[in-house]
Every structure is written in structure tokens, then in C-alpha cells.
Design a protein around this nucleic acid. Sequence first.
DNA 1: ATAGATGCAAAGAGTTTGCATAGGT
DNA 2: ACCTATGCAAACTCTTTGCATCTAT
Lengths: 131, 131
Amino acid sequence: MERETRQRTAIRAAVELSDRPLSALEILESAQEQVAGMGIATVYRNLKALTESGVLTVVSLAGANPRYEATRHGHHHHHFMCTECERVFDIHSCPGSMLDAAPKGFTVERHELTLYGRCNECPPDAERAGA
Amino acid sequence: MERETRQRTAIRAAVELSDRPLSALEILESAQEQVAGMGIATVYRNLKALTESGVLTVVSLAGANPRYEATRHGHHHHHFMCTECERVFDIHSCPGSMLDAAPKGFTVERHELTLYGRCNECPPDAERAGA
DNA sequence: ATAGATGCAAAGAGTTTGCATAGGT
DNA sequence: ACCTATGCAAACTCTTTGCATCTAT
């Protein structure tokens, strides 16, 4: 990662200016607003490079594609995924405890907690039906 | 899902007799010990049918392929994935609390917690180096 | 006998990679 | 000018699907 290309700048900006973790496709669409015609391969290559250099962090989710966020959000947190719009949001807390709940002889290195539900823009069905 | 074929029986047995959740490939390999030449498509088709009929449950993991387990383990639990051998194990506890940690206006429907580390057969590097 | 299930191979989604060319430095 | 980064397309992994054939009932 040695050159400051328009593509790299746009990709980095897309992630760093977002208030939530973005998927590769969301990043492509956002970055294409700055650099029309950008290819998806460029996004993946840069996400990989920026992740390896520590600028970005991968957010792995159960049953969903990876999302990417700026590492500066880097204080250990978890995520919420909306089951309707599939957008992912940060949540700033952690069950901290119980991480020694693994069987004897097992060593816990890290953990991922993901909440699933409806975000504030996608009200649950009950609410849509009612008043 | 109407017929009791040798393939379906072997697939179901593979999952139900396992003490941990298995991936589609692990299930194929296990089931092929009973029915040589079984195809992976048959595994996927049966996993889908058995899941829809409630016999099996999908275990979605962050950053890994889905695993499958018998639904009878069905008392809400979480999982541990070994970062060395990639096998997944059940852990029978849950952070229960903090599930209202989502932002205002968000509704939590469910959650997934995954621990990552070394299982009892894959000791961490430190331990391998030392005595 | 009949209709669901299987195996194979092709098709899809998401991601990675090879190669010629464009573009930062 | 040099060499990294890009764009395109092909390759890859995991999963799904179409189709002819097999088989449980």
C-alpha cells in the first residue's frame, strides 16, 4: 500500500465517514460516487490492504457477509444487524463476563456477539399493523 | 421429505450422533462412510429439508460456514470455534443480560455469541513451545 | 407404477487472482 | 520512467438448481 490513488482515497473515506460498518458492496457504491467505474476487485484489494495495515477492521457476523469499519472505533464493542434492511450498527457494550464458560482445556482468545432485530427505521410487524 | 432413503438416514445419523455441530462437508464425509459415493448436493438438499422440518438447527457463525446440529440440543446455547482445527463445540451458557443494549428505537429479536480460541486438542502456541 | 430423491454438472453469490494497462511518484 | 494499482475477466469456494435416472413406497 504505497500510493495514494483516487480509488484508495474514496474507499477509505467511505468507511471512515460512515457511522456504521459497511459491506464490500456498500463501500463500492459509496466510493463510486467519487470515482465512477471503480471495480469491485479494487474494493476487495484495498479492503484487504487497509485491514492488514491496521487502518480498517473486519466485522465478521454470523450468517452475513463481512462488514468493515475504521479501526479508530477500536475500543471493543459488538454489533446489531437489522433483519429487515440488513444494515449493521455498533453497540457499545459487552457481556464481559462468562468468557471463561468454555469447557476445561479450552482457551478463549476472543469473542463475537451479534444482536439481530429491527433498527429504528424498520419497525417490527406488530408496530406497522397497529396505530 | 417423504421417503426414508439410505442417504437421508446416513445424513441424519451423522448429525444426531455427533457431539458437536458439523459443517456440510463434515456431514458428507461422515455420511459417506455409510453410503459411498453420496453427492454434496444431496447433503445440502437434506440439510435444508431437515432444517425446515425442525429436525436440525443451523448454527451460524461469524466468519465461518454454517454448522448443523440436532434440534434436541434445543435449550438456547452458544458456540466455541477452535481457530486451529476449525471444529465447533457447544457451550452451555449465555450472557443473558445486556440484550437491551441496543440503541433506542431498536428491537432485539435474538443474539449469537461465538467464542474463538483453542480446543483441548489444539493447545496454544505458548504451550506447545514450553515443556 | 409413480413421484420423490439422487448424482452430476451447470449456475449463482461472494471473493480472489492473473494479466495487460493506466497512473502516482 | 518505473513500478504499484486498476479494471476486466477468469478462477475459486460454498451452495443451489436443472435434468435424467433411480428407488422407496
